[in-house]
Simulated assay, not measured.
Amino acid sequence: MKLTVLGCSGSMSGPAGAASAYLLQAGGYSITLDFGPGAMGQLLRYLDPADLDAMFFSHLHADHCVDITGMHVYRRWFPDGPLPAVDVYSPADGMARTRQIGDDPEDETYSGAFHFKDFGPGARTTVGPMTIEAFPAVHPVPAVGLRIIGPSELDPKQDVIFGFTGDTDLCDGEIEMARHADLLLAEAAFEDGRDEARGIHMTGTRAGQLAQQAGARKLLLTHLQPWTSPENVRRAAESVFAGPVRPVEPGETYTV
């Protein structure tokens, strides 16, 4: 599997790029994980949207889903004719949320562009060689972490595990999601000693604890807001996690 960071800014787009959005590819199949502000433009740098096989959302806060309206326009009004509908998985009502963002009428079903599917905790599906499973997260709206098992980029005969927390505080569901992950992409929007709220986001320390308790091999930190220091969260995560830690940047790719 190959991960491309389309955007990694938390809560809003940032000076260096888009908000949370990631492209995961394996065996000729491509899926997106979240699709925040600026994601559509960045996706066009790496993939023809006609080749996108599915979209997954950890939750439906605007900074993780708002560019679905851009995907709708692209698929519906492409000059050479509409693109085929793509499956859209989310832990809440994706169709209703898309209507809210686009200010579309109640009879708009997006049937030509999207097939909306419920994907709450315990849900499981396959896209090509990738198996995607949803785990409980702790956030103010329905949210999940996503565990994806698929072929290794180095040895396609060997399966590897990629974990994506979405937005969450540290919880048992996320630990199970990240269990023995070869690569864990974890949000760490809060800084230790600055942000005291619980039940919303992780700090670098809690992201590191998640990786350590789950037995993950490598930790990537994401969803860092423009006012959050990547170095502060990295050092905090390294203080509790024995493996390698790196804050991601837009345009980076990682093989699993």
Rank of each mutant, 00 (worst) to 15 (best):
R217D: 09
A197N: 09
T125P: 06
R179D: 10
F164D: 06
P247A: 09
T203E: 02
L43N: 14
A186F: 04
E153W: 09
K2N: 10
M177R: 15
T253W: 13
E108H: 14
R97V: 01
S152C: 06
E187I: 01
Y74H: 13
D172L: 03
N232F: 07
R234P: 04
G166C: 10
L185I: 00
H61M: 02
S90C: 14
L185G: 00
Q158T: 04
H139T: 05
H72T: 11
I161H: 06
A54E: 08
E238I: 00
H201A: 08
I132Q: 00
P226F: 05
G7Y: 09
L184R: 03
L183S: 05
Y254K: 00
Y254H: 08
T165N: 03
A137H: 13
C8P: 03
L52N: 13
W227V: 12
R217K: 13
P140H: 11
H115W: 05
T69V: 12
P105A: 14
D34F: 06
G215R: 08
D118I: 04
M71N: 02
I101W: 11
A62H: 06
L6A: 10
G112T: 13
V127Q: 06
T205A: 14
R45F: 03
L60D: 00
D172R: 01
G7V: 11
L43R: 15
P151F: 11
S111V: 12
L43D: 09
K218H: 09
A26I: 00
Q42P: 01
F56A: 05
A18L: 13
R179F: 04
T205V: 15
G243S: 15
G41T: 13
F162Q: 02
D195I: 06
Q225Y: 02
D87Y: 01
T165W: 05
D34L: 07
F78Y: 15
S58V: 09
M40I: 03
G215V: 10
Y29L: 05
A54C: 05
A214D: 03
V248S: 10
E174Y: 02
F56Y: 12
L170F: 11
P79W: 07
Q158W: 00
E252P: 03
R45I: 02
A50P: 01
A211S: 07
L33Y: 09
N232E: 01
E187R: 04
R194H: 10
F162R: 01
P230Y: 13
P129A: 05
R217I: 00
F241M: 08
P129M: 06
R217M: 05
G10K: 05
P15G: 04
S9L: 03
L23K: 13
R198W: 05
V73T: 14
F119I: 07
R76N: 11
M95S: 10
D118S: 14
Y74A: 14
D67R: 10
Y254S: 00
M40C: 08
L23R: 15
G120A: 11
A181Q: 02
H139F: 15
H180M: 12
T168K: 13
L219Q: 07
V233M: 02
Y22R: 07
I200D: 01
P37Q: 11
I68P: 02
E176F: 06
P142M: 04
A236K: 12
A197R: 14
L219M: 07
A178V: 01
